[in-house]
Amino acid sequence: MSNKIKADLLQQLIELERQLLEPSVRQSSEMLAHLLSDDFYEISANGLIFNKAHVMSRLPDEKVPQFYNQAFNGRMLSEGLAQLSYQAAYRRSVKCQLNYSVRMSLWRLEQQSWRLVFHQGTPCGEFILHLDD
Rank of each mutant, 00 (worst) to 15 (best):
A7Q: 08
Q27D: 03
V55M: 10
E79A: 03
Y68Q: 04
S101D: 06
C124W: 01
P123Q: 11
A7F: 12
E15N: 06
L36R: 04
H130Q: 15
F40V: 01
L129S: 07
R58P: 08
E42I: 01
V94I: 09
K63H: 06
A89K: 07
Y90P: 05
A45P: 02
Y90K: 10
R115T: 02
L9R: 00
L84Y: 00
A82I: 00
N73K: 10
Q87M: 07
L20Y: 00
H119G: 01
L10P: 03
Q87T: 06
I14S: 05
P23C: 04
S57Y: 04
R18C: 05
R26E: 04
S105L: 10
R26Q: 13
L59W: 07
S2A: 09
S24W: 13
A88F: 00
R26I: 03
R58G: 09
F40H: 00
F127R: 01
A89N: 01
A33F: 12
K6Q: 15
D39A: 03
P65G: 06
I14T: 00
V94G: 12
C124T: 11
V25W: 02
I43Q: 06
V25Q: 09
Y68E: 13
E42F: 03
P23I: 07
H54V: 08
A89D: 00
L16R: 05
H119V: 01
S101H: 10
L48G: 08
R26M: 09
V117Q: 11
G47S: 07
F127C: 04
G125V: 13
P65Q: 11
M1A: 13
I43V: 11
R108P: 12
A45Y: 12
A33Q: 14
S29M: 09
